[in-house]
Structure formats: C-alpha cells, structure tokens
C-alpha cells in the first residue's frame, strides 16, 4: 500500500505523512555521527568518518579544501562551519549553495551573513524539494556552528524537511540518541571551549563503534574569536592535530610496543 505514496516527494499518504522525507531521515541515521557543542566563547564540531579504505588515494585531500575543509566538516563562510551527515554528494551540493549564498550576502551588505540567515537560506532550498519538482529531498542533515554580532555564538541543526532549530549541544547521524542523552547529562551552561572540546571528544569516543579514536576516523573543528582582531576564526583540525588533541585528552591510540617497554 505504502508504495502508492512514496514515489514522489510531493504526495501525502492518507495518514498525512511524507514518506520520502522519512526515508531521507532514515538514511541520515545510518550516516557517520556529527556532534556539536555550544560554549560561551566558541563552538565545537566533531564528525565521524565512516568508511576508510586502504587503497583510497587520499593524496589530494591532504591539504584540505576551502579553508581546510574535510570530508564531513566544511567552512561555509569565515564565520560559519558546518558538519554534514547523510549522502555526501547531496551534501557537497548544499555546501556549494551555502557558500554562494554567504558570498552574495557579503557582496550586498558588506558583512558576514548572520548564522541563522544562512541556515534559513539552506532550509528554504531543502523545503522546496519537499514540495516541488524533484524526485527526492536532500538526504542531508547539517549542524551549523557560527558567530555573528547579533546573537554571538550559535549552533543550529537542519533536517531534510527544511526544519531547523537552535541548540546548546546536539548530535546527528548514527547513535545520535545515545550521544544526545550523554550530552544532556554532561552539558553545563557557561561551559567554555576548552571544556567543550573535552566533552565532544568524550561523547564521540563513547558513541563511535571503534574502540580507539584516530584522525582516520574523526574530523574536528572549533570556531572561536581571534583575541587580537575580535573576528570569528574557524579552525578545522588537520589529521596530525587531531591525533595530538586525542593524545592530550588521553583518548588516542596506544602504541602497544612502547607501552610494553615502559612497563
């Protein structure tokens, strides 16, 4: 029966549901975890990379993309970074759209686009695919971490239906339920970036399937204010920096040989 109502995005089922959107959400709940925590002096994002093949040629990705963007964490504008969960190809298209929208705003108003407005731009596009034309909606959820002078640091989440909401800490992708309850337990108001980094890594290490965290499975980024210029500064960590960070928080891979030697 359901078959009759899920072949197009535009058609409601008799129970008043849009199946394609629910399927898109389902696709996202299998994607790599993306986690965001809002602190009083910054925002922290982390993302889990799902498949890593030994034969995949990563030489082109070593330097990172625009502003050091990786596979799952992207720089959208100088004041916004985002983590994506879902179909990578759809995500790339949305990221490209967001960057263009941000540049258009900069051109028109000579200011960085406010974070909520950028979220709205993408949600308008996503909503469009639940109503017109296309065969399916975007299979992507995003977390937006950003700064603007109106509301300072912000964290937003948007889903394939075009809904968005602001959060203090949230998680999308696989195991997001576990992560959310962990965050609910551990999040404190007035948390600072330093603590937020620790919290993100801790929750990530508990939700991810693999026993040890490493740069091949994890992407990490922070958005803070540059102390000198007071302008927002996005830092998307390079693999070596991620490994160093994990080591600092005692979550990194243990080199068994050295452990044997020291004991």
């Amino acid at each position: 029966m359901a078959r009759r109502y899920d072949s197009r995005t535009t058609i409601f089922s008799p129970e008043g549901r849009l199946y394609q959107i629910e399927y898109a959400m389902e696709a996202i709940s299998h994607a790599g975890t993306v986690l965001g925590v809002l602190a009083k002096d910054g925002v922290v994002l982390a993302a889990e990379k799902k498949v890593t093949g030994k034969l995949l040629d990563m030489s082109g990705a070593r330097e990172g993309g625009y502003g050091g963007s990786g596979e799952k964490i992207f720089l959208l504008n100088s004041n916004v970074i985002s983590g994506v969960a879902g179909i990578a190809a759809d995500a790339n298209s949305l990221v490209n759209y967001a960057r263009t929208a941000a540049q258009r705003h900069l051109f028109l108003y000579n200011e960085d686009i406010p974070v909520e407005m950028l979220t709205q731009r993408l949600c308008d596009l996503k909503q469009g695919y639940t109503q017109f034309g296309g065969l399916r909606p975007f299979g992507v959820s995003l977390l937006y971490a950003g700064y603007d002078p109106h509301y300072a640091f912000q964290l937003y989440h948007s889903d394939p239906s075009g809904n968005y909401s602001g959060w203090k800490a949230t998680c999308i992708g696989a195991n997001n339920g576990t992560a959310q309850s962990l965050l609910k337990q551990e999040y404190k108001d007035e948390i600072d970036v330093e603590e937020a980094v620790g919290l993100v890594l801790r929750v990530m290490s508990k939700t991810m399937d693999s026993t040890t965290l490493g740069s091949e499975k994890l992407e990490f980024a922070t958005l803070t204010l540059d102390p000198a210029t007071k302008q927002p500064k996005a830092k998307i960590y390079k693999p070596s920096e991620i490994d160093a960070l994990l080591k600092k928080h005692d979550l990194g891979k243990k080199d068994e040989d050295t452990e044997m030697k020291t004991t």
């Binding site: 028109l108 108003y109 000579n110 200011e111 002078p149 109106h150």
Partner: peptide, 11 residues
C-alpha cells in the same frame, strides 16, 4: 533584528 548601521550604509 535590524540591519546594523555599516551594513545598511553599504546596501
């Protein structure tokens, strides 16, 4: 929220 003065001026 309104446009801030620098942005309004640029526009």
């Amino acid at each position: 929220y309104p446009l801030r003065p620098p942005s309004a001026a640029s526009w």
